[in-house]
Write a protein that binds this DNA or RNA. Structure first.
Lengths: 143, 143
DNA sequence: TTCTGTGCAAATGATTTGCAGCCAG
DNA sequence: CTGGCTGCAAATCATTTGCACAGAA
């Protein structure tokens, strides 16, 4: 698997777009931070390294990273889009506590396989999926 | 299972809230329309029956219906929250074509069961879940 | 040189909220 | 009566866009 920098660069060339210091920096910070990141949060981190960078550039770059397949997007239910790297971390789903907001990353191979089958049964080929499980964690349940 | 009107009424009483003609009408239209409905769309339908009703009231009532457990909320990825009745229709997940936007409702009992187990393994008790499968439908794939 | 990228501020679109009067309990 | 409700318009919040200038290729 090629590294994200290379993938991004190839994506830019393929679409006649340009590599810039801003895009390079945003990608670097994005890859280093991991956790489901809102544009706003990424913007704050990027600004620490280069205060001249604009909010809009972060939004625009995040969209590019998503189109390039480098960032996956998540909608947890507040009105904010969150992103996280798709390379360097394996796919996972989310188990969310409705009381305390705890957000656990989970994977279940059997479910993944059944999702494929379910899609195939309807003539679909899957490109991705999102699964959000909402409930109460043990602490919140006993408290 | 009690009917939605009763559930709503009990919810209102329990929270010292009041039943009003607006809320009654909004609930009625909501239940009759089914399909994943944005507040905006519901507002338009409600207005046909009572043009004096305000947009904000629809937003406020939809939130009440959600809190009362009568409406489930869905986030498909455009910035709009959609609702649909949780009573009178069985739970389902979504298979979405990324090209043509086709949105098929699906259920897989085996997956449902595995979700419960997965949650239990992490000490959670589930209250609900959302699963969105993204891909290409057969038509879009061959076109 | 030629476009594409950038920062800024203004624009957008969905949803929320303040307020003065209305009305259910 | 009283405190919750309503419509309206203004306010928010996340995100997008127009624009003039800057800077990759």
């Amino acid at each position: 698997m090629k590294d994200p920098q290379t993938i991004f660069h190839e994506y830019l060339v393929r679409n006649k777009l340009k590599m810039t210091p801003q895009r390079r920096l945003i990608l670097e910070v994005f890859l280093a931070s991991g956790e489901h990141l809102a544009s706003e949060e990424l913007y704050r981190q990027v600004r620490d390294r280069d205060p001249s960078i604009g909010q809009a550039t972060v939004y625009r770059t995040l969209k590019l990273l998503h189109d390039a397949g480098i960032a996956g997007s998540y909608h947890f239910g507040d009105g904010v889009v969150r992103y996280e790297p798709r390379y360097g971390q394996q796919h996972h789903d989310h188990l969310i506590c409705e009381r305390c907001g705890k957000n656990i990353e989970v994977v279940d191979e059997k479910i993944e396989r059944l999702q494929e089958e379910l899609a195939k049964r309807h003539g679909f080929v899957l490109t991705g999926h999102r699964m959000y499980l909402y409930g109460l964690c043990s602490e919140c349940r006993t408290a």
